[in-house]
Design a protein around this nucleic acid. Structure first.
Lengths: 236, 236
DNA sequence: AAAATAGTGTCTATAAGACATTATGTC
DNA sequence: GACATAATGTCTTATAGACACTATTTT
């Protein structure tokens, strides 16, 4: 296997294969109060006790990383059921965690604020939402992971339908546009946005209007598919 | 599901954290005889002895996955020095390797054919090049990894300058176009390709022409940067 | 009728893609 | 001068982006 190699650092005739611990760490994003926010937990153990980190957990025997990530979502943020989640990157630097050489398989997940339930559940760590625009310093290399996750999600918004993950089943075009503006962090032109988005064929009108306040009610729409779909053409 | 879990499967009060082996597996691509090819090695051990697999190796103690991948490139394909390589995905299914629960951190690398040296070097496994258009069945889940790596590289060609990894320092526009055609698997219009590529400002003409056969010599170009650069605008 | 958001169309500029001929070397 | 590849420009169509007013409902 490592053929031809005569001497390994250990002096043994076999390479010093590492048996490593793996964690699944999740960049869990949502929208609250018209702002994109990320779930962070306060560490209850050393090292870095009391400082903020991404929710994460060790991968168990016979478990795949994605299942561990879903377990983390359930246990630390009360998120159950269908959630948009994708693998982000695997961080393997031996020094990234001061406890030892621990690999992090990082995920990004996007949920509606409503699907987070911090209050109930047995967690001792206290999760909370932080706006991505002004972030505190995070433990380990979690700042880097978060930054990377944010970039990934912003890219995905342009090339996929994942806005569905932040919207109820039925929504208005104004709500959809607002989601894009919050995630991308810039204002969009209403007419151009509607023209473009409708031309993509990812949403369709439903027989329902939203009669909000003292103004004209809005046509509601639904996503044709609530599974992640990649576009050939960007939204913006 | 996992919320409120009082007893772990082992009955212990601590979760059954797994200590796992990790491998770095590399989708190593090159161009040979006007075809995109991938390096595969014949397995010299069980399981799947004699069948084809991606070059890979276990991650060692205090080593990061990327270093392991570079070691694999060096040992199994004689590739040294600066190589375009990026992390692809991490495969963690417990059943993916029949030897046990082994994680694969997969990488894609792109090199010039000239930089591969199979002959010399101490490997007992015999690496060889296979056209990506007609691939044999691979061991484990390597077929899936390869397919994913190919997709990644094709996407990257459209949005970055990584064509540099398949070209000598100086090259003609026809050579560049040919690289794109081989990687993407379709013919491109010469005039449109030149117009577009030159407008991106990623290459510049040098004071040299290539006088090949009995025809007009071609202007040579070089990449402004031979580091991976992401574009805001696609090449094609 | 005032307030508030919904809903709509045009114009301009830029880019993509289809397409054919001339230029300049070597042999 | 025959051959082979290099090099080049125009037209059409589609898309992106700037931009302002009318429509409909509630109170």
């Amino acid at each position: 296997m490592f053929a031809g190699m005569k001497n390994y650092p250990t002096g043994s005739d076999r390479p010093p294969r590492a048996r490593l611990f793996l964690t699944a760490d999740v960049v869990l994003l949502t929208i609250e109060d018209d702002a994109l926010k990320v779930v962070l937990v306060e560490r209850t153990r050393r090292p870095d006790l009391g400082s903020l980190a991404l929710p994460g957990g060790f991968i168990w025997h016979a478990e795949m990383a994605e299942d561990a990530a879903r377990r983390v979502l359930a246990v630390k943020a009360g998120v159950e059921g269908d959630v948009y989640m994708e693998q982000l990157y695997t961080f393997t630097e031996p020094e990234r965690d001061s406890r030892g050489h621990i690999i992090s398989v990082a995920y990004v997940a996007v949920v509606r604020r409503h699907d987070l339930s911090f209050a109930d559940g047995p967690q001792t760590e206290t999760p909370a939402l932080y706006p991505v625009t002004k972030l505190p310093k995070l433990s380990f290399d979690h700042g880097r992971i978060l930054k990377y996750g944010l970039k990934r999600i912003r890219d995905k918004f342009v090339y996929t339908n994942i806005a569905y993950a932040l919207l109820p089943e039925r929504f208005t075009l104004s709500q959809l546009q607002r989601v894009y503006e919050i995630v991308l962090g810039r204002d969009l032109d209403k007419r151009n946005f509607r023209k473009k988005y409708l031309s993509l064929g990812m949403i369709r009108p439903v027989q329902e209007v939203l009669s909000g306040g003292r103004h004209r009610p809005a046509q509601m729409f639904e996503f044709v598919s609530r599974k992640a779909v990649a576009l050939t053409e960007p939204v913006l």
